[in-house]
Simulated scan of single mutants.
Amino acid sequence: MKGFLGFLGFVLLSQGIGGIVCQLTGGWFRLWALTHRIGFLDGYEIYVCVLLVVLGVAVLFAAESAGKRA
């Protein structure tokens, strides 16, 4: 369980950071982030990316907590 949560947290965190970098650089890192490809998120990409970073950190903390209990 710790491994899966760690992987999920890493993916969420990297997509959030990649999306923020993509938005702030004017789209240079388009292949790195997937949030700009989802049509209904137009105009809200930066907010979704910040949310992904927060969720990624929370899942990584949950993975660490699950590892300490086991």
Rank of each mutant, 00 (worst) to 15 (best):
A70E: 11
Q23W: 11
S14D: 03
V57Y: 00
C22N: 15
F10V: 11
Q23P: 02
F4H: 08
G3T: 13
G26C: 04
E64Q: 01
G67N: 03
F10G: 15
L51F: 15
G43E: 05
L51G: 13
G18K: 02
V59T: 14
L5I: 01
F7Q: 02
L8S: 12
W28Y: 11
E45N: 07
V57L: 15
W32L: 15
G3R: 14
L24W: 14
A66E: 12
R30S: 14
I38Q: 09
R69W: 04
R37Y: 07
M1G: 10
L13C: 07
I17T: 09
V53P: 02
I20K: 07
F4Q: 03
S14W: 12
G56F: 07
R37Q: 11
G9Y: 03
G43Q: 07
A33N: 12
L55H: 00
L60F: 03
F29G: 01
G3Y: 14
E45W: 13
L51R: 01
L12F: 15
L60D: 07
F10P: 00
E64D: 05
V50P: 05
T35V: 14
F10E: 01
L52P: 07
G26M: 06
I46E: 09
R37L: 11
I20G: 03
C22A: 09
V57K: 01
G27C: 01
F10S: 13
A63L: 02
I38M: 09
G19L: 02
L5F: 13
W28M: 11
H36L: 05
A62V: 07
L34I: 14
L8M: 14
I20Q: 03
G9H: 04
I20E: 05
G67M: 02
